[in-house]
């Protein structure tokens, strides 16, 4: 898919957001996409109803609202999550830049809808940011983008935590650095990819970690 095509998906979603009842626009989406959009509508309706009820009860300023909402929205949230995950897994499985452009669009929709309650999506955001840096990096060519080697959300989160754990072991001297060097070399992860994770993760001494890895990788 070209950049123009990507804009089309973006445009279609914006069109739909302006009028969610517009059947003509809905028909431009695939069935799985329509399911996501329909669930999103339902989610918004439920959320608005709960907010109204809390306001009527005079509880709009209560911090415990978030938990009351979570309790009532759990079912629809889980449904939405499942549909989003399926869509993103399908796109990731293509291993193509164009598919990641679509992932960015779908993620934006999720974020704008303020229903990003799931930790997987926080990590997806980190990897999307890395993807943007990778495609803008003069050293990375399309076929070598590290992000494209991730084929589903499970793999994405596993790799993210694996890298964080290995980097942290370097920071605390928990074990020799060989394992992470082997891992990065074997997976052919780029400097941008590793740096993006180190920056995002709870690693105190980022400079030390990156310096240690740089001394042995990407030579």
């Amino acid at each position: 898919m070209s950049e123009k095509d990507c804009m089309k998906l973006n445009d279609r979603i914006h069109c739909w957001m302006r009028n969610t009842e517009d059947k003509e626009i809905l028909q431009t989406f695939s069935e799985d996409e329509r399911n996501i959009l329909n669930t999103l509508c339902k989610y918004k309706m439920i959320d608005a109803a709960i907010t109204r009820k809390l306001e009527e009860d005079g509880k709009q300023e209560d911090t415990s609202n978030i938990f009351i909402k979570l309790e009532k929205e759990s079912e629809i949230s889980m449904q939405l999550k499942e549909q989003f995950m399926c869509k993103i897994n399908m796109l990731m499985s293509k291993g193509m830049v164009e598919a990641w452009m679509d992932i960015m669009v779908w993620y934006s929709l999720l974020k704008e809808s303020k229903c990003v309650y799931f930790w997987e999506f926080s990590i997806l955001k980190i990897v999307i940011d890395i993807f943007v840096k990778e495609i803008n990096s003069p050293w990375e060519e399309e076929g070598q983008l590290s992000v494209l080697s991730l084929h589903n959300m499970q793999e994405l989160t596993d790799v993210y935590f694996k890298v964080v754990f290995l980097c942290r072991r370097i920071e605390f001297g928990v074990e020799p650095v060989d394992e992470i060097i082997d891992y990065i070399n074997r997976k052919k992860f780029s400097h941008v990819f590793i740096q993006g994770i180190v920056q995002a993760a709870w690693i105190f001494d980022k400079k030390k970690v990156m310096k240690t890895i740089e001394e042995r990788c990407w030579k």
Binding site: S64, F67, I68, L70, E71, S74, V116, Y117, F118, W119, E120, S122, F161, V164, R168, W202
Partner: peptide
């Protein structure tokens, strides 16, 4: 300690137990 808790935890039942 370092706590790598997965952001926005599964708090669906938080209100019930609260």
């Amino acid at each position: 300690f370092i706590h790598d808790d997965k952001e926005v935890l599964a708090l669906w039942n938080h209100n019930k137990y609260r």
